[in-house]
Design a protein around this nucleic acid. Sequence first.
DNA 1: TATGACTGCCC
DNA 2: ATTCTGC
DNA 3: GCAGAATGGGCAGTCATA
Length: 926
Amino acid sequence: MIEVRYERGVYLPQQNLWLDPWDAKPFAFISHAHNDHVAPHEEIIVSQRTARLLKSRLPGRRIEHILPFGEKRRVHGLDLMLLPAGHIFGSAQCFLFLGNETLLYTGDFKLRPGKSAEQVQWREADTLIMETTFGLSRYRFPPTQQVVDQIVSFCRETIEAGEVPVLLGYSLGKAQEILCSLDGVGLTPMLHGSVYQMTRIYEQLGQSFCKYVRYRANDVAGKVLICPPSANRSHMLERIPRKRVAMISGWAVDPNAVYRYQVDAAFPLSDHADYDDLIRYVDFVRPRRVFTLHGFAAAFACDLRARGVEAWALTEQNQMELHLSAADNALPVDPCAEVSRTAESTQGSFHKQVSDTRSEFLAFAKVGEAIAATPAKLEKIRLLSDYLRELTSEQLPVITTYFTGRAFAQSDPRTLQVGWSVIVRTLQGATKIDDAAFHSIAARHGDTGKTAFEVLDARTTPRPFTIVESRELFESLHRARGPLAKAQLLQDRFSISSAREGQYIVKILTGDLRIGLREGLVEEAIAKAFDVPLDQVKQANMLLGDIGETAALALRNEVHQAQLSLFRPIKCMLATPLPSAESVWQRFVDVGDVDGGSALATQPAIFLEDKFDGIRAQLHRSADRVEIYSRDLRRITGQFPELVDQATNFQEKLIVDGEIIAFEEGRRLTFFDLQKRLGRKSDGEDLFARAAADVPVAFVAFDLLWLNGESLLRTSLRERRARLSEVRLPPQFQIAKVVSARSAAEIEQAFRQARRHLNEGLMIKDPESLYLPGTRGMFWFKLKKELATLDVVVVAAELGHGKRNNVLSDYTFAVRDETTGGLLRIGKAYSGLTDAEIAELTEHFKQNTLADHGRYREVKPDIVLEVAFNSIQPSARHASGLALRFPRIKAIRRDKNVDSIDTLQYAHELAARDAQIQQSVSPEVA
DNA sequence: TATGACTGCCC
DNA sequence: ATTCTGC
DNA sequence: GCAGAATGGGCAGTCATA
């Protein structure tokens, strides 16, 4: 069969033809002139009208094969025919004659007659590649005339109310359709510039419209303004004080369209086929197989399979699946299709519950439960490795990624934007459970996953769920814009998920499996499953930042092939915290003192560096490219354009490890200044010019991992440092000064010196150590000390989560305001107490509760804690107006009571001192 | 238009 | 970030 | 000693809504 691939556009490799590719290609069919299809290709096949529209959208030279509709032509030995697609003016489908096979690619299309687009035509074809923008059954559009009538009424009523109606629709296609709809109803359309321009081209090509005028700012009264959606909230519209804005789009059938588009009304007039028409079209074309594209491609393909039509969503991720199925000329196993066919043949309901052993995702969840059930690490590994061995090469990467609590690989920058709030709403929506029942379940668990299980249990109609479909769910969640759209997707899935499946979907969404197994054990399971050395698996995962790809390599026995290379960030080496210079020194003595002789005399020197308070960063630089990655392998290049500019001045190709700090000579900047630059959007150069001026940064390099093609991971720190010191640095780059030490006293002195330089603390490193990515080994240590401690009183306590579900483990505490005598909250902390102490305090607080709010209770202020922290500063978070950085409990002060706690005034003194230190001098870097 | 809730990602 | 706990 | 689990503050961006 004809091979079909997808890579930012449909690609037919045997014909070397691209269909609507996003990027410039040598030879492509362009279905219509919307911007997302316009790229500077070398040679294109287009309809006559599309060619004309393209001229205005993308001037420039290219070879154009302009084909009439309905006539078979030969281009580069390829027999093909264009058919009208009915989407917009000039939009075409491409029908290919390939030997004794035929293929129809729809591009964007609609079946309903449009007033400004040619009527769609079709032919039967063996392979149908179709757009499925509205491929969910809830997208059914009302009759066109009904919608047009609504739009006209909206315009009339708005004008009668003395306001200006504004209709939003794409300037090419939709706007002209609206224009035609207003013909003969006695309204005068006024066109936004871009709409006007496009409409004039339509007219040159023979289309005629009713009378309209071009936009003039002082002449809008009584007119109907037609603008592209991008004009909403623009300066142009803001100048019209009294207006009502309506979005004209198929998405208007979504109940929340008005909010989503920030408009007063929304009307479902679309240039795309709705769900019913998509189904009808497949019936017309009678294809042997269907590939779906855009929108709800996966869901629609599944629906088609349920109707007995072989159908697959075309996405990048499906390449392997398609390739294999095309090569084998066989269908991949798919329980969805399987089950639905049975249901159909017995005339039963599609939604009839089927035995859940059919659900691949349920099988995954059950393995998770088995792993959770045993506390033994080796047993967990065994359970997982047995399961991994059963998986197909397509499922394996997905499942291993899930077992690290992620939907996407670590190095994959995609996020879901689905958190606790969306999940809770969705669970309620999917089950129609009432608020009281829901909250009673949630309160009992304090674990979203368990809550999901109990809420969904017996309240859903489970249908089988394949691993590939689960991956598609997460991809759709990522793609969906806004919490409402995401919630809808998730709710649809929950309503057909078993309780166990829902629980594991939630676990992945929250990034927290809580089954006593994380990445480290997954690596071990992969090694065990495919009988490859563990260190190779760890190495590969570290280099790839992708446990799924690592597993795939292990399956093919290719893990050893992973290599450190430019622009593939690796996890950084971490340091183990130690409380004192003496304890640090002891580590090195213990290691070196093998012969029992005098350690001090024989100890080689150890390396000391200041610990900078910035963000850990890995800089990759080649002759023509620079990238910066964060500790979690996020690409943060865009946040620091000035560093990127400077980094082009290196003489070498390299990977350096270091810290980006807020830094300016003669000025004390802190982590908080730096943080202002972190989440910022990377587009908009002027924003950055300003940010860079506000918060200048420096890159302090302290390690060299790769140089001109050579990996230095397996060379000693001493050697790496020597090589780093030879690198010529551009401005804004510095090298962290390294000094040697041979005693605890020297470490202590260096620590004090680092503090005097206003750095966070001291790093202590074994000069002979190799670079061990991702591990907090015994080769690097860090020494930090608290700024101060405060004696505070606990005023509220909360139930914890997970294994702390039944104890009051999280304490809110307060200081005394001397002026009023009242208690003012200053922070929260849990860490620092042992389980026994938490249990004891739980009992105490239960008996000394002032107000019980469920998971949270106010308690009698009689437990005094000594709380340590690293800095204290003004904040609106707590009533005291101060907040602590890294608060932790140092001790329960049983010797103190509420009358002897520290005061707000004292806390303010600490904060003032903290702030003053910050401002006094410039820090020293190198 | 302004604000707060939510999310993700730094420490 | 910090800290504790079970293997 | 390691890996896992449960917890802190603050910032920017997005979306929903007053």
